[in-house]
């Protein structure tokens, strides 16, 4: 009889531990089990990616539609090439859409925001977004502000989040 309570509570304990691990995986780290199969790949080249890193989200209208898989330097063009995996459900991104590197809040994470274009054709797997806006580098911005040249330069056009 005593042994039975031991066995039941040990079983419950093991279940509770595994349940906590599953919660950590799904709820906390946002792991979804079928990410691998249902994405397609897009590229975008930026002058400057700032502190954008792997695993940053790719959002459209504030909704996450994919993730940054890799950030690398294109040796020929000296541009930063961002590799993104986009959810296959979102298969209707027009070819003339633009990608911008946006900062969440003043000091928050960087992510890629995609603004929809007007073309009738949609981006396919392994294609590249041509229209890009680089990250705002805070130091540059402050430097320009001190020199009184804010707004007179095209580079700071991403300043709407400011």
């Amino acid at each position: 009889m005593r042994m039975r309570t031991v066995e039941i509570s040990v079983g419950a304990f093991l279940l509770a531990g595994l349940f906590a691990l599953v919660l950590l995986a799904l709820r906390v780290s946002g792991l979804s089990l079928n990410t691998e199969a249902s994405t397609y790949r897009l590229y975008a080249e930026f002058d400057n990616v700032g502190s954008l890193t792997k695993r940053a989200k790719v959002a459209m209208g504030g909704v996450t539609i994919g993730r940054v898989v890799d950030v690398e330097l294109d040796k020929k063009t000296y541009m930063a090439r961002v590799v993104m995996d986009i959810d296959t459900n979102i298969d209707n991104i027009p070819v003339d859409s633009s990608a911008a590197i946006i900062t969440a809040g003043l000091l928050g994470e960087k992510f890629i925001g995609i603004s929809i274009g007007g073309a009738a054709e949609f981006l396919q797997d392994e294609e590249t977004i041509d229209d890009t806006q680089s990250a705002i580098v805070l130091e540059d911005l402050i430097g320009k502000f001190l020199l009184g040249s804010v707004g007179s330069d095209d580079d700071s056009s991403g300043g709407d989040s400011f």
Binding site: L21, L24, A25, V28, S29, G30, L31, R55, T64, E109
Partner: peptide, 10 residues
Amino acid sequence: EQAVDFRNDV
């Protein structure tokens, strides 16, 4: 969810 990675953190 965005900050915590399953492989690298959990």
